[in-house]
């Protein structure tokens, strides 16, 4: 086992484990914290793929901004009673879990049977790609237009959020 494999296994276990914790916690606050852990492990996985920029952004935007927003909302709503929301096991949920498991099995089945002609990773190339320089170049040249459009998306989202969260529409 190389160091790399060990690191990957640790991160993968963290990733799956925290994900399971997210969907099983009764308290939303706990779920948020596990989700942050999940995002950190994901950032680590990005690093094993030499995607440094994405890894940093993952922590800054997701773990930093979005999750804080979640926590803020949970605190704001003051969901004390909601914490005791008991989860009932129903036929519908069983079916949902069963179907999900079936889909996962199918995907894993496909992956297990795919051939040996897989692309081989060129670490140096990947390192070059994942750099801020390379991503920045791509964003401001080939993807300039979609990049600018995201600004409109964000503006609309802000306006929409403000309108929705207002007490009364007038």
């Amino acid at each position: 086992m190389t160091v790399e494999t060990i690191v990957f296994v640790i991160l993968a276990v963290l990733f799956v484990g925290s994900a399971i914790m997210v969907i099983t916690r009764r308290s939303p606050v706990l779920a948020v914290l596990y989700l942050i852990l999940n995002f950190f492990s994901l950032a680590g996985l990005y690093l094993t793929l030499q995607a440094q920029f994405i890894a940093v952004i993952q922590i800054l935007v997701y773990a930093g901004a979005i999750m804080v927003l979640f926590l803020f909302v949970i605190m704001l709503l003051n969901l004390r009673d909601e914490e005791r929301l008991t989860e009932k096991i129903s036929v519908r949920k069983m079916i949902g879990v069963g179907l999900s498991a079936a889909v996962l099995l199918q995907v894993l089945y496909v992956l297990g049977f795919s051939g040996s002609d897989l692309p081989v990773r060129d670490v140096a190339r990947a390192e070059e790609l994942g750099s801020v320089e390379s991503i920045g170049k791509a964003l401001f040249t080939d993807f300039l237009f979609p990049f600018e459009v995201t600004s409109i998306v964000l503006i609309v989202a802000i306006v929409g959020a403000v309108i929705l969260a207002k007490k009364k529409l007038d």
Partner: peptide, 25 residues
């Protein structure tokens, strides 16, 4: 990373943007 093409990472960048907007709304 495996195919040596930056487009995937650019797409992740956009997904994150949309996710941020989605979280707000």
């Amino acid at each position: 990373s495996f195919l040596g093409d930056a487009t995937g990472q650019i797409l992740v960048f956009f997904v994150m943007t949309v996710a941020a907007a989605e979280a707000a709304v």
